[in-house]
Write a protein that binds this DNA or RNA. Structure first.
Lengths: 205, 205
DNA sequence: CCATTAACGGGATAAGTGTCCCGTTAGCCG
DNA sequence: CGGCTAACGGGACACTTATCCCGTTAATGG
């Protein structure tokens, strides 16, 4: 018995293998958008991608495996962050990009599906954690620069501030499932900044 | 063809019907804790509850239906909220209860599963929304009283503040999937309060 | 351009899941 | 306490999904 998935596709990654992966991941995302993670099956992915069922099982093993790989793919399409020299504007750009992501039908549904997959599969959970910690780290520099410029108190924890700003948006998306508006993004920024200016993001001694 | 689920159990809700519901919901929760929403099947629920498979299909229809009913049941076990006359203490009690919920193996896993179910089923999503809006509303009075006492600015939006405080905890639980600590709960409260004292939770004119 | 073999695809098979029929059990009401 | 029937339970059936075998295709390297 060979290793089911990790090996396949690594020795000859060119041409066909790459095309198959692209087709499968796109089909995966399509189905996630239409039916959510619960409605994702290996069978349908194979059929929709125009690919042999065996191939999907061999390379990805299970639906959480598909979702995890899709998440890794999305992680590589990271959008560059703004840096205007004004924290409020920069963090607003961050919040708005989160808002756009969760509001966009395709990306929002995908995010929800990946989050659902993360609740029952360790591999998907790892991919999720990796994706978000990376996204957060990209914006931390904005906060650090603001601290240097004196806009925020010395020692302000950028990672925590960035998290605090996006948390309410995701909270509405997946937990309370209320509609998320652009104003929510704006409010989240002003609240995070208000707390940050008051020193609430400076760790205790 | 009769109505599949809404009717059954409403005419003779006593005795057996109630016992079956309790057994099924408990089995549902057990399986959610062990395998997550993705591993929940009608078959296993019936077997574990010691109940006919047909009964589960007739009364609940689908796995999201089970989850939605479980959520309604949990919504009725609402814990009373504190009111010590000190906002910080009260909101800390709220945050700690959220922390305990998401940290507790059984309740935390159940919450994650219900959230996963909400991503692909409208009924589960409704149950989720109902559960959380109710929980939030229970704590809004604490904020309102604090405003009356002058601890917080006039016009502070209690619902938003309560949401802002629990959001980072759920965000860590289901989105970034980082460990959630009691200190996270404490920080969340102090940050929310810092923003609230600065007037960031007072709606613009 | 050819040989090698990684990777794919079709189809058969097995396992699991959802649906239905109909006989049995036990709430509810007079 | 006895009849009516809501609700349950077992088991057969159909469908979907997962796994496996083996022949075919096409990347890779010389």
């Amino acid at each position: 018995m060979e290793q089911p998935s990790r090996l396949a596709g690594t020795v000859r990654p060119g041409g066909r293998t790459a095309r198959v992966r692209a087709a499968v991941l796109e089909a995966t995302q399509d189905i996630l958008v239409e039916h959510g993670f619960h409605g994702l099956t290996m069978d349908q992915v194979a059929a929709r991608a125009g690919v042999g069922k065996t191939t999907v099982y061999r390379r990805w093993g299970s639906t959480p495996g598909l979702v995890a790989d899709l998440m890794k793919e999305l992680a590589n399409q990271s959008s560059p962050h703004a840096d205007t020299g004004d924290v409020e504007r920069d963090l607003l750009a961050n919040a708005v990009s989160v808002w756009e992501a969760v509001t966009d039908g395709r990306l929002g549904a995908t995010l929800q599906a990946v989050i659902a997959a993360g609740t029952c599969d360790e591999e998907a959970a790892d991919a999720l954690r990796a994706f978000f910690t990376r996204r957060i780290d990209e914006w931390v520099t904005v906060v650090d620069l603001a601290v240097k410029r004196g806009e925020l108190p010395e020692g302000t924890d950028g990672g925590e501030l960035v998290r605090a700003i996006s948390a309410p948006l995701y909270y509405r998306l997946v937990v309370t499932r209320e509609p998320v508006t652009r104003r929510d993004a704006e409010r989240s920024v002003s609240r995070g900044l208000a707390a940050a200016r008051a020193g609430a993001f400076v760790p205790d001694p």
